[in-house]
Computed example of a mutant assay.
Amino acid sequence: MAEFADKYEALILRRERSRLYVTLNRPEVKNALNPTLIGELKSVFTILRDRRDIKVVILRGAGGTFCAGADLKNMEQSFTDKPKPGEKDPIAVWNRQFGAFLEMMNNTPQVVVAAVEGYAIAGGFGILCVSDVAICTEGAGFAMSETAIGIVPAQIAPFVAVRIGVPQTRHLALTAARFKGAEALRLGIAHYLVPDSAALDAKLEEVLKQIDKCAPIANALTKQVVMRVGTEPLSDVLDFAADRFAEARRGPEAGEGLRAFAEKRPPRWAVE
């Protein structure tokens, strides 16, 4: 079983039973994304693909801010060389790597909970939009700000569109509009809105206790089904869903869950 590193340069990891807390740790730049931070996140989610002992990942930012997007200083200093004839532009290659990470996070078998305060801007907004559950403070700020500095929200836009629909994504992307928590809740970006950091911690614990009640493999299989909705014909999705139902029913969780129900006790996974 692959293990996480003892220490990361731009992340803080904390394990608590079946929960993994992942904190973006570049508070001096509002947890802006640079190659180190993205690389470490990618390494963590690569390990998570095969870890069934972890059923929920909690993402938040150090210093009271979730993530203010790409580190623009790093971006400005990068890619001074033009592509060679016949080669793909290295900027496009670099940009697509961030999309690959978002795909990985979007499809991870664990439940991903984003706890957001401060800012979730640009790339940070994209990370928020691939979470399964989002808890945001009223004062948190959000934006797809890329077009305001002359670039394209290329890798985050498809995930935002899946989250809130194409019309709303067009509005946010083509105006670079900034908005707060109440609008994030209205748009469906956030699932819970809380007044401050203390309330964020309390709501997070409440949500985690709800997730504790759910069987981890059943959650992973359910996520696989839901992720196919809208991208495959309905009949194919239902066929896939039936196979996942059979997989779960013949697996150990269903037997434990049914016994626990009959014996009027919590299932094993709810108390681990």
Rank of each mutant, 00 (worst) to 15 (best):
G118V: 06
I149W: 04
A143C: 06
A120G: 10
F98E: 07
I164N: 12
V112C: 03
I135Y: 02
A161T: 11
A120H: 09
A100Y: 00
C136Q: 05
M75Q: 13
Q168P: 06
G99Y: 07
D89H: 07
I91N: 03
G139Q: 09
Y119T: 14
L128Q: 09
V166R: 04
R163P: 06
I91M: 02
Q110P: 13
E76R: 13
I149M: 06
M144S: 14
E146P: 05
T137W: 08
K82R: 12
P153W: 06
V111Q: 04
L193A: 08
I151T: 12
F179L: 15
K82P: 06
P109R: 08
G150Q: 15
E76H: 08
R170F: 12
L174S: 14
A176T: 15
P153R: 05
P90A: 00
D81A: 11
P167S: 13
Y192D: 10
V194S: 10
L185I: 00
P85R: 10
W94T: 00
A173L: 09
S131W: 03
V130T: 04
I189Y: 01
R96E: 07
C129G: 02
R186Q: 14
V116W: 00
A134K: 05
A173G: 11
D89V: 04
S78Q: 07
I91A: 04
V112N: 02
E146K: 03
F79T: 02
Y119M: 14
V93T: 02
L172T: 15
V133F: 12
E87F: 00
T137R: 05
V112H: 01
E117T: 15
T169L: 03
M144K: 05
A143S: 11
A122D: 08
E138I: 00
D81M: 06
H191S: 04
T80F: 14
V152C: 03
G126W: 02
G141K: 11
K180C: 13
A140D: 01
M104A: 07
P167A: 10
I91S: 01
G150C: 15
F159Q: 11
I121L: 15
V152P: 01
I91T: 01
D132N: 10
F79A: 03
G139C: 14
A177T: 14
A140T: 02
L193E: 09
Q168D: 14
